[in-house]
Nucleic acid binder design. Structure first.
Length: 556
DNA sequence: TTTGGAACAC
């Protein structure tokens, strides 16, 4: 890097160069010069350097800490900058360790700039106890009148569902601004107190974009898209966040047509918008559309972020396209994405498992520093898809041994697996475990899995008894599964009982009549078959004729 | 020469 001669004389001459830093390499070069010129103890220059580090380096970098540690007696500015970096990236424990270090050995006193970052760190993990400690420390330091501290405390207590505490802070503030009012309003929205939130919105002396967007988000969360759209239309200036919030709302309500037209209306879109639209399609089971959107974005020469790639991986998993999976992985490797981040790693495991690359999925899974419920479920489901029922069962057992608590979705997966693989004893054991050890109440889907499992292996009586003990009344799916099993094992007697029940629950479903008729037919009970046909036509039911894709698309 | 902190979208 060419250096201007003026650098010889003053540390300030480095500033313009420092501010133009874009990469780690740039930073290293500047740092070298700082050391060479003996500016390592220059508080002003190091403060600037640390600020630029936060903008350029990845969050996990410990470079700023190293630079800070080389300063013999850092001033309060340096402490506060490092504290903020810690609060945004490190664990709450590390933030507090730094705070203690600051108070004990250092020759500085925390000031009003120190506390808001710490409070923010507490609110991001809902650390109520820790946040109260910081609040008390801030009061002891005499900074409680500060509007930044007040606003961060309102946000913190609101996020921790301590709305009364938030309101107390709000009421006791001598100066409030848009942030204080908006934080209080968000607190009410998160507690479901729409009236109080509305009151805040109407009464606040000044609103900015974030205020309006927060209100839209609150209404979207309550499922009131009509009101959300009204607020959106009433906004003086709409930005990307306003549009994106509404797009997400439409997507979550299953209305992708509305989401897409809102997207198309946007004057300018950022990466979050693209990612929101993609994950909307994924959530609504339209992976092909998600991939198309990715293609549109790609054609515009935009570099996808990790959120977009996670959505793309979910779409790929739904499609089961091994080719696309391989492309995504190699693209991410070349693009130096952080594949170790928890949600990225989980998406990679899921994608490979569902696309048939169990070997790769297993490797990624085992290399994860921590295997959570989601990753375990991806693997178990992958093994299920590939017919490795026994392996899936032993992985489920390992998950429990590792202390990961299965939820209702996990049990649906393992019961389905047992049913597919005909693992009757294991399935029954898991069903029992779910109720007795994990106190989960089985859903209709769980019952249907069990009926399938018992029914397929010929334990029709057990399946019938289970269904009679089912607290969820009149769930047709599980009874239909049992009728299917009766047909499989030619059990006319039970088939008649089950069918009778089904005719009551869903009288318009011709499939049940057809199943029973097939049971009769296989036992050569043709009288019963014709009786049944008669009953069907009385009710105006018709067997829906089988129709193949070819027949329906080829002209006659 | 004089630095640092809070709220809204995936």
């Amino acid at each position: 890097m060419p250096l201007l001669p003026v650098l010889e004389h003053s540390p300030f001459a480095i500033l313009p160069l420092l501010k133009s830093c874009k990469t780690v390499r740039n930073l290293n070069q500047i740092h070298t010069h700082i050391i060479r010129r003996g500016y390592e103890q220059d508080h002003f220059l190091i403060a600037q350097f640390l600020s630029i580090c936060a903008a350029v380096l990845p969050a996990s970098s410990c470079y700023p800490t190293t630079v800070f540690n080389a300063v013999i007696s850092p001033n309060i500015y340096l402490w506060n900058i490092l504290m903020k970096a810690h609060c945004e990236n490190a664990s709450i424990g590390e933030c507090f360790a730094l705070f203690r270090r600051m108070r004990k050995g250092a020759n500085v006193v925390p000031d009003k700039f120190t506390f808001p970052s710490l409070i923010k760190a507490c609110s991001s993990v809902m650390a109520l106890r820790e946040g109260r400690v910081v609040h008390a420390a801030a009061v002891r330091c005499g900074t409680e009148g500060d509007v930044f501290l007040g606003s961060s405390l309102i946000d913190f207590y609101g996020k921790c569902r301590e709305i009364e505490c938030a309101r107390k802070v709000f009421d006791e503030m001598s100066v409030r601004n848009e942030v204080s009012w908006t934080s209080m309003m968000v607190g009410y929205l998160n507690c479901g107190d729409t009236d109080a939130a509305r009151w805040m919105f109407d009464e606040m002396p000044k609103r900015n974009g974030a205020t309006w967007n927060a209100m839209i988000k609150g209404l979207v969360k309550l499922g009131d898209l009509v009101s959300a759209k009204k607020v959106f239309d009433a906004m003086p200036v709409r930005d990307e966040v306003s549009f994106t919030t509404l797009i997400d709302g439409y997507a979550k309500a299953g209305d992708m047509a509305a989401a897409r037209s809102m997207f198309d209306e946007m004057p300018s879109k950022d990466l979050v918008t693209w990612s929101t639209l993609m994950s909307g399609y994924v959530q609504n089971g339209k992976p092909g559309e998600a991939v198309k959107v990715f293609g549109e974005m790609w054609a515009m020469n935009l570099k996808p972020d990790e959120f977009i790639l996670v959505s793309l991986m979910s779409a790929c998993a739904q499609l089961g396209s091994l080719e696309l999976a391989k492309w995504i992985e190699s693209y991410m490797r070349e693009g130096s994405y952080d594949m170790g981040r928890a949600h990225v790693a989980a998406a990679l495991v899921d994608m490979n498992a569902k696309c048939g690359n169990m070997e790769r999925a297993t490797k990624l899974f085992e290399e994860m520093p921590e295997r959570d419920l989601v990753s375990y479920c991806s693997m178990i489901q992958g093994l299920c898809i590939h017919g490795c029922g026994a392996q899936a069962v032993s992985l489920f057992n390992r998950m429990i041994d590792e202390g990961v608590r299965p939820d209702d979705v996990a049990f649906t997966i393992i019961l389905t697996t047992c049913s597919h693989a005909g693992l009757v004893d294991e399935g029954c054991r898991f069903f029992d475990l779910m109720i007795k050890k994990y106190s989960l109440s089985p859903s209709p889907d769980h019952y249907a899995c069990m009926v399938n499992l018992l029914g397929k292996s010929g334990k029709l009586k057990d399946a019938y008894e289970l269904l009679q003990s089912m607290p969820v009344e009149s769930y047709a799916g599980a009874w239909g599964a049992l009728l299917g099993a009766c047909r499989l094992h030619c059990d006319i007697e039970l088939g008649e009982i089950v069918a009778k029940r089904l005719f009551e629950v869903e009288p318009q479903n011709s499939g049940n009549y057809v199943l029973l008729s097939n049971i009769y037919a296989e036992a050569d009970r043709w009288m019963n078959v014709s009786d049944l046909r008669e009953r069907m036509s009385e009710k105006g039911l018709r067997k829906i004729p089988g129709c193949s894709y070819l027949e329906s698309t080829t002209p006659a």
